[in-house]
């Protein structure tokens, strides 16, 4: 009996997690313009509205551009740092890890306001560069953590073997280590991209109208009456998330093999 109650409770909680998301997806295909059921009919008009709009489409491009660049920057900086951290021990490791992981725990509102203050005088507020730098800083801990985890399964003796065969440290890293930890690196990059795609508070404070990302544009649309175009945007972000989740799942499956 106890098992039955447990299953009922667990399934109810799972339904609670999924229901709100599943509830808004069909609304974006509504032929009417109201946010409730039953739908008067199905249509793609809100998606046409999305792709024909002067602010949703640029927001989509901004999200992809800023997310891609931030993920690239975070990966470029995070992979060598993770490789270094993997070989560091003691106090140095603790200090570096503390700094690197700090963006994960500092409330993002503090980061947003601090960056608004710091970026103002140097002209980085309301620029793509400013957003990319900020999102890279927020995403880099995920790269470091993921790459560190995949380095746990890498045998360091191989590097010595590569050195004995005459490979320099750089060559040894690229030819021996990187191919083996690549799923971890890719997963870290996807994590960083997803972090940027999710992020709205920093965007609220330091992005100008030309840097509005998809979540930022959604936030603006949520303050007054919600349009079904916003629901369509939400549905597209959900689709993005599902793709990213599947990619990471696939990468982690590869890493385990």
């Amino acid at each position: 009996m106890g098992r039955g109650v447990l299953w009922a409770a667990g399934l109810l909680v799972a339904a609670f997690l999924l229901a709100p998301i599943l509830a808004i997806l069909p609304l974006s295909f509504s032929a009417g313009s109201f946010l409730f059921y039953p739908l008067p009919g199905l249509s793609l008009r809100w998606y046409r509205d999305f792709f024909g709009s002067d602010f949703w489409l640029p927001a989509l491009w901004n999200s992809l551009l800023i997310g891609g660049a931030a993920a690239g920057l975070a990966t470029l900086l995070g992979v060598p740092a993770a490789f270094g951290l993997w070989r560091l021990r003691g106090a140095a490791r603790a200090v570096v890890l503390g700094v690197v992981l700090a963006p994960m725990v500092v409330p993002v509102i503090v980061v947003a306001v601090a960056l608004l203050l710091a970026f103002g005088p140097i002209g980085l507020v309301a620029t793509h560069a400013g957003m990319i730098v900020a999102h890279a800083a927020l995403g880099v801990p995920f790269v470091v953590v993921t790459v560190l985890a995949s380095l746990e399964g890498f045998d360091a003796v191989q590097l010595r073997a590569a050195a004995a065969c005459g490979a320099g440290p750089v060559r040894a890293f690229f030819r021996v280590c990187l191919p083996q930890i690549f799923p971890g690196v890719a997963a870290g990059a996807v994590f960083a991209f997803a972090t940027s795609l999710d992020e709205v508070v920093v965007a609220l404070f330091i992005a100008g109208p030309a840097q509005r990302t998809l979540p930022r544009q959604m936030f603006a649309g949520l303050n007054d009456s919600i349009s079904l175009t916003t629901a369509a945007a939400a549905a597209m972000l959900v689709a993005f998330s599902v793709v990213l989740l599947l990619v990471v799942g696939w990468l982690q499956g590869r890493a385990r093999r």
Partner: peptide
């Protein structure tokens, strides 16, 4: 994991759509 990956703004918006006065 699925909700974990979905944007916070989207999930907040979903609740707004559900809970607002003329909502679901």
């Amino acid at each position: 994991l699925l909700p974990f990956w979905i944007s916070l703004v989207v999930r907040t918006a979903a609740w707004m759509v559900l809970l607002q006065r003329e909502g679901v």
